[in-house]
Simulated scan of single mutants.
Amino acid sequence: MRKIVIGIATFLLAALYALCSLLPQRQCIVCISRQSDSAPIDFRLIKDYCERRDPAWEVIILPKQLRNPTTYLLEMIRQVYYIATSRAVVLDSYCIVVSLLHDRIRVPVIQIWHSLGNMKRFGYTAFGTDEGHSEATARLMHMHEGYDAIATSSLSFADEFAAAFNAEPAKLFEAPLPRVDLLLDEQHRARQREAILAAYPQLRGRDTIVYCPTFRKQPAANEAEAAGALVDAVDFDRFNFVYKPHPVSKQVIDDPRIVTIPGGQFDALFVADVIISDYSTVIYEAGLLDIPVYLYAYDWATYREKRGLTIDFENDVPALFTDDPDAIIKAIEDKEFDAEAYRVFENANVTLPENASCTETICEVIIRAATPCKKKS
């Protein structure tokens, strides 16, 4: 039954795409995301660069999370129209339309993914894990098929990254995400920090610990208990505690002593003096910001079984890795963190371009692919 439904959906999408392909193409790049309902910062930076470039390129951003299948069908129709009338497609996540029309799309499709660094198995390398997709469904949906180029923040893990997309390593190109430019821009960092402090004045006067756990498809049984224990371990006379939830996480930490700063207008990382995470690629962003990192592995025994990993957190990451919240807070208080060792780890996962910004690097790859617009073989 599932195969029949997917076959019908593919036929209808293909018919709509063929119809829309009769319309004129514009010098336009369409960026599609399922990560949020607002334009991701990476796409906003791509848009700003391309529209200021000479010659300029129009950039259309289509962000939409898949919450309601009925309303998402309308979004898929919109996606088909822009894919058919643009000269390149850029994705930061899995796109149903692109995958189902993988062999019909006549313009280049560039996948930039939404995470920095190499850490977890996903896509084709996550089959058989609790956090991964069903292999049968993924293959029926042609998941991650149809990409002409795939950005990665470092070619040091090219084989693992290519395997996740079931793609040839030759399709990969080294280009960290555009938002890395903002992390490296001291003036931007200072402006963002001040904006956050203006919005949350209670954070002034003390160092701020930012807690940003990864998303878990199946929350750990001890999630609430572990979060409460971590908050209780903090000396609030010395530190602020900010919770930065994952964009698609439903976890809430209900404690009047903490400040929750969700994604959107502000990125809590810019106000952080210390970061506590677990198995999140946020640890690479922290490295770019030169902020000490501590790893709270309260569900390590079960998480490593549910979620395939590509690095050994206990030995590869030069940061305290423990399920003991008191040990983490003591290490923070004593400033126990090897910044030099962490810098080496960071450089192995994020290779910065030498003669251009990250935004320029990734945009020029996209524009070269779209100029001239060549049909796929």
Rank of each mutant, 00 (worst) to 15 (best):
L155G: 14
D181F: 08
F241A: 06
V274F: 15
Q251F: 10
F122S: 14
D316M: 01
Q111A: 12
E51I: 02
I283V: 11
P353A: 09
T310S: 03
A56R: 15
Q25N: 10
S156Q: 15
R204T: 06
A88Y: 09
D207A: 08
D54G: 00
G7M: 01
L203H: 08
Y200I: 06
F43I: 14
A175T: 10
R26M: 08
E333V: 07
S36P: 01
W57T: 12
V293Q: 12
V293M: 13
L184F: 09
G146C: 02
G263H: 08
I328H: 06
P178V: 10
R238F: 02
L91K: 05
S99M: 00
S357E: 07
Q79V: 10
F11V: 15
V234Y: 07
K335I: 01
C358T: 04
T361H: 09
C50F: 07
P69R: 03
D37I: 05
R106M: 04
I60K: 12
D148N: 15
I258F: 07
K120S: 15
V271T: 14
R52Q: 13
E160H: 06
G287C: 11
Y298Q: 05
L74G: 15
E225P: 10
D48N: 13
F157N: 13
H144P: 00
E186F: 03
R193T: 07
R104S: 03
V274Y: 15
M1C: 03
I329D: 04
L12N: 05
D316G: 04
G146I: 00
E340H: 10
V5P: 00
A224C: 00
A126N: 15
Y147A: 02
V350D: 05
L230K: 03
V5D: 02
E340Q: 12
D255N: 12
R216Y: 09
V350C: 09
I60D: 00
S357C: 08
M1F: 03
L309A: 12
R53L: 06
E223D: 10
P169V: 14
A39T: 07
A162V: 15
I311N: 06
F127S: 07
S38V: 14
Y303Q: 04
V271K: 11
W57R: 11
Q251G: 01
G146N: 02
T71M: 07
R304Q: 14
A370M: 11
A268K: 13
I367V: 14
F337H: 14
L101I: 01
D92I: 11
I367A: 03
G123F: 06
P69A: 05
S357A: 08
S38C: 07
R206V: 01
V107C: 14
P219I: 09
L91Q: 14
I4V: 13
D334L: 10
D130I: 05
Y17Q: 06
P178C: 07
Y284H: 09
G287T: 06
P108Q: 13
A18M: 07
Q79S: 08
W300I: 02
R139P: 01
L116F: 11
I96W: 08
P69K: 02
T281M: 12
K171Y: 03
T371A: 05
E354G: 02
Y284F: 15
D185A: 02
A158C: 13
Q192N: 09
T129F: 15
M1H: 03
K335P: 00
W300D: 09
T302Q: 13
L230F: 03
Y243I: 03
Q111G: 05
Y82D: 01
D54P: 00
Y303C: 04
R34L: 12
